[in-house]
Amino acid sequence: MIATPEKLAASNKATVESLLSVSAAAMASAERLAALNLNTARAMIEDSMANLKALTEAKDPQAFVALQTSLVQPGAEKLVAYYRSVYEIASQNQEEISKLLESQFAELNKTMNAALDEAAKSAPAGSDAAISAVKSALAAANSTYDSVSKAARQVVDIAEANVSSATSAAVKAVGATAAKPARKSA
């Protein structure tokens, strides 16, 4: 198995291109997260000013408490929406990088099999068993990788369902708490 300079150069180029793709995906996610944070901060400031103005215009303590209580639910919903967006960005980034790495793994697998086939052609007599063992180990590694990938995808799906369920429950709980009338002190 002799590697020619052209093969090494092509392999290095593919590796660099793969790293650039992963870096570009990570940078795109960072840009989306930065934009989300800026928009959220802007909206939070605007909402805070509007809420503060509304609270200062309250005519009596009961109106103040009622207004304050009515502001809890929308704030909680916006917070949950923000975290959901952050989760979506992270999840999409992870998925995109996983796809890039899977394609790289498939390409590496293909290259390894081709190299083994080439080595088998020029190998001395009696080395068939060693090459078969390497191919068998490669097939086992591929099978393990596929199993782990499927299991990881199932874990991600379960986590996504749990996050969705938990955020919905949190919004409902905040809404129920905000809807309860304020107690009067005795």
Results as ranks from 00 to 15, higher is better:
Asp157Trp: 02
Thr56Gln: 09
Ala186Leu: 07
Ala129Trp: 03
Ala151Gln: 04
Ala179Cys: 05
Gln73Leu: 08
Arg183Gly: 06
Ala178Ser: 04
Lys150Tyr: 00
Thr40Tyr: 13
Ala120Ile: 03
Ser48Val: 13
Gln94His: 01
Thr144Gly: 07
Leu100Phe: 02
Leu55Asn: 02
Val16Asp: 04
Leu71Pro: 01
Glu57Leu: 11
Asn39Pro: 09
Ala34Asp: 10
Glu88Ser: 05
Ser122Trp: 00
Lys99Thr: 11
Leu36Ile: 14
Lys7Gln: 14
Val134Asn: 08
Gln62Trp: 07
Pro124Asp: 05
Leu52Tyr: 05
Gly126Cys: 02
Asn37Gly: 13
Thr167Phe: 04
Ala28Val: 12
Ile97Lys: 03
Lys184Val: 08
Ala9Phe: 09
Val65Thr: 09
Leu108His: 10
Thr177Trp: 11
Asn51Asp: 14
Pro181Ala: 07
Ser11Asp: 08
Thr177Ser: 08
Lys180Ser: 12
Val80Gly: 02
Ala166Cys: 11
Asn37Leu: 10
Lys184Leu: 06
Asn37Phe: 11
Ser127Met: 15
Ser70Leu: 06
Ala9Trp: 06
Ala81Arg: 08
Leu100Gly: 03
Ala50Ser: 15
Ala106Ile: 00
Ala25Ser: 15
Ala151Val: 01
Ser70Val: 05
Ser91Pro: 00
Ala58Met: 15
Leu67Asn: 13
Ser98Gly: 08
Ala166Arg: 12
Thr177Val: 10
Gly75Tyr: 09
Gly126Ala: 04
Lys135Asn: 12
Ala170Asn: 04
Tyr87Asn: 11
Ala178Val: 02
Ser85Tyr: 00
Glu88Tyr: 00
Gln73Lys: 13
Ala169Arg: 09
Ala119Cys: 01
Glu118Phe: 00
Leu33His: 12
Gln154Met: 03
Ser103Gly: 07
Val155Gln: 04
Ser29Val: 14
Ala125Asn: 04
Tyr83Asp: 06
Ser122Thr: 13
Ser185Glu: 06
Asn51Ala: 10
Glu57Ser: 14
Pro181Cys: 05
Gln62Ala: 12
Thr144Ser: 10
Ala120Arg: 13
Lys180Asn: 10
Ser103Pro: 04
Ala3Gly: 01
Ala58Ile: 13
Val86Trp: 02
Ala179Asp: 07
Asp47Thr: 15
Leu116Ser: 00
Leu108Thr: 11
Ala170Tyr: 15
Ala106Trp: 00
Asp47Lys: 15
Ala66Lys: 12
Lys180Glu: 11
Met1Ser: 09
Val134Trp: 12
Ala140His: 12
Ala176Glu: 15
Gln92Leu: 05
Ile45Pro: 03
Arg183Ala: 09
Ser70Gln: 10
Thr56Cys: 06
Arg32Ser: 14
Ile45Glu: 02
Thr167Ala: 06
Val65Ala: 07
Ala137Gly: 06
Ala133Met: 02
Leu100Ala: 01
Thr177Lys: 03
Ala10Glu: 13
Arg153Phe: 03
Leu67Ala: 14
Thr144His: 09
Ser70Gly: 03
Leu20Asp: 15
Thr69Ser: 10
Ala186Gly: 03
Ile158Met: 12
Asp128Leu: 03
Val155Tyr: 04
Arg183Trp: 01
Ser185Tyr: 05
Glu17Trp: 14
Leu19Lys: 15
Gly126Glu: 05
Leu138Tyr: 02
Val72Ala: 13
Ser132Tyr: 04
Leu71Thr: 05
Glu88Gly: 00
Asn109Asp: 11
Met49Phe: 09
Asn142Gln: 09
Lys7Cys: 04
Thr144Asn: 11
Arg84Cys: 02
Met1Thr: 07
Leu67Ser: 15
Asn162Tyr: 14
Ala173Ile: 03
